[in-house]
Design a protein around this nucleic acid. Structure first.
Lengths: 343, 343
DNA sequence: AATTATTTTTTACGCGCGTAAAGAATTTGT
DNA sequence: ACAAATTCTTTACGCGCGTAAAAAATAATT
């Protein structure tokens, strides 16, 4: 690598022997120049380690190559994984992803959308907080920036929604549990942060009715995003009050289940299948840690790859076509039942 | 809010009745203008919802207000938490944090540093991958950008390192375990990803020698960042080979311990204190989930707040003073023993 | 009120790159 | 080999803001 510092595209153009407009054209789309000139430019890049000033690049472009990724809560490894997959695909497509986490707070979500707007991104992938989100602000944001919602739907906002089919999660777990043992009670937060929780409750009620079984919903207290602690406290409460009708609990999500399993352990309840156990516990999401609970958690898995892949594809299509969708489309992927030892 | 769209600072200056250079001065430091003009500008901002174009702002500034935050693995909620705390403090200080995760891959780490360099950040907080990091590239990066390393140290790189005192972690756990029962064996990966692991092993050996006890290190196979699975497999291997000398295991970190506890449960070993238990397991880090393992994990907690707070403070000091430190300073915070049921 | 210190305005240039237009050079097709 | 099509060079302007310098206005001090 040559030690001479290239200060700008003008200098780089002259050392590479190509005119500046052509070099500029190359950086905006390497395939837009002849193969031979492309080779010369790339050789010069290699030699001088030059890259254009992104601030000057983006100043005049109406559309940058930035993509915003917003998740509600990064301390949940589920979103860490999602972020990883989405980031990779954005980079492969030549975009620059910027990752943001609302950390469970509506004010942070607002600030992020503000920041994002000034980044003039080509598009945004947004997993909103849900119930506490500032709906009108999100709506205004989506009007200005091509946005695909994922994970958690807010009716009518964004050009599209990509997520998991909550009904498919719950129908599989309820069907499995009631076929192989006593019917499940449904364990959830009284005021869930996320609209998926409501869909899951309704799916539970619906499935139980279909199967001709008596539904039983256990609603526990607690607000915020510390689901494990909420699940643990709620679990202790329910176990001590003897509020169970059957020996089977179906949790709304794995993080609550992790807390519940902890409570069961502490209270001396043996969780699992078979006669030597007191309780069966199942759940939804296939959280990265659900394999390592004691016992390992029976759950329904998201199709991670499909959800993130389709969300990205949808956004790319939106960006490339340059037009907004005439109808907002919602794509839901089915769950896959993961049978482990807890139920 | 007025509906008229302000296109640039010129227009904004004219509607606010202040000259453009003064407005520019305001945006670079609101306290640098007279209180009365500041009030007028802020009223106009409120009314027209104007904010300057960040690309044009940063183009001419040698030093932007950006701060890069790089963590090795976001699917570990520990880093999600760290990111949350650091982000907040950066925003409070008027900086724009950009969060990046290497996702356990050295190539990603390299790409991130490349991206970061072109963002011309005022400073960077870097938690490197460790063993697999491209040391020479990090070194070159640190020469160009004021960088504070945290969590995982690489000798001599960056202006400072802020982390936890591994010796204090291990000394407390070893002391506690050997005082209250049989001395611990040390459970770790044969090829740990992170230099902290090596320090912990050495601290274990040192402590055992001091206490006049025979050390015993269990090194398990596996590479990468899926520590739980590595711990689980290694745990099964050790339990089935009956490789334990005592009834006490001290894990290098909580994520390995989570896997080990899972293996213990699957193999029918009862973990905990007291005569009705087979095994004691303790660990280090106070991972967000360690409270919810079964049994809850006895561990040594990082001083999260101090580490992230001091790392940020150090970087701010570096940025404000404008000078590099003459000597690289390393600050280590002590651990706090968290006694739970596993040991 | 006069002097001094502070703040703002006016004027002007530059940053690094996007991009448009016209002409020159190169490649492609026959 | 020649015309047509493609690609590149030259020239030139603009984006939105930072920033410097001198002049003007305002505030603080005596």
């Amino acid at each position: 690598m040559d030690e001479r510092k290239i200060r700008n595209m003008e200098e780089f153009a002259s050392v590479s022997g190509i005119s500046r407009p052509t070099v500029s054209k190359y950086f905006n789309d390497p395939t837009s120049v002849r193969a031979s000139t492309r080779a010369r430019i790339e050789a010069a890049i290699e030699q001088y380690d030059y890259r254009p000033n992104i601030y000057a690049m983006n100043q005049n472009r109406q559309l940058t190559k930035n993509i915003g990724i917003v998740v509600p809560y990064l301390a949940d490894p589920f979103f860490g994984e999602i972020a990883r997959v989405i980031e990779r695909r954005c980079i492969e497509a030549g975009f620059s992803p910027s990752l943001f986490s609302s950390h469970g707070e509506a004010e942070q979500e607002r600030d992020i959308l503000d920041t994002l707007r000034s980044l003039k991104p080509a598009g945004v992938l947004l997993a909103p907080l849900g119930r506490t989100s500032d709906k009108s602000m999100i709506e205004a944001f989506c009007r200005d920036v091509p946005t695909v919602l994922f994970d958690s739907n807010i009716e009518g906002m964004g050009e599209a929604f990509v997520g998991s089919d909550n009904y498919s999660f719950v129908s599989q777990t309820v069907e499995y549990l009631s076929r192989t043992g006593e019917p499940p009670s449904f364990f959830e937060m009284k005021h869930p942060a996320n609209p998926n929780a409501n869909k899951r409750r309704r799916a539970y009620l619906d499935m139980m009715e279909r199967l001709g079984l008596e539904p039983h919903v256990l609603q526990i207290d607690g607000t915020g995003w510390e689901f494990e602690e909420i699940g643990r406290k709620g679990g202790h409460d329910i176990l001590s009050r003897n509020a169970l009708r059957t020996d089977t609990i179906l949790c709304s999500n794995d993080r609550l289940a992790i807390g519940l399993l902890s409570a069961c352990y502490e209270a001396g309840y043996r969780v699992g299948r078979g006669s030597e156990h007191d309780l069966r516990v199942a759940s939804h999401d296939d959280h990265p840690f659900s394999r390592y609970t004691c016992p390992a958690l029976t759950t329904a898995a998201h199709d991670y790859a499909s959800v993130s892949g389709h969300a990205v594809d949808t956004l790319f299509h939106l960006i490339e076509s340059g037009v907004r969708f005439s109808t907002r489309d919602e794509t839901l992927f089915s769950a896959r039942l993961i049978m482990r030892d807890s139920a």
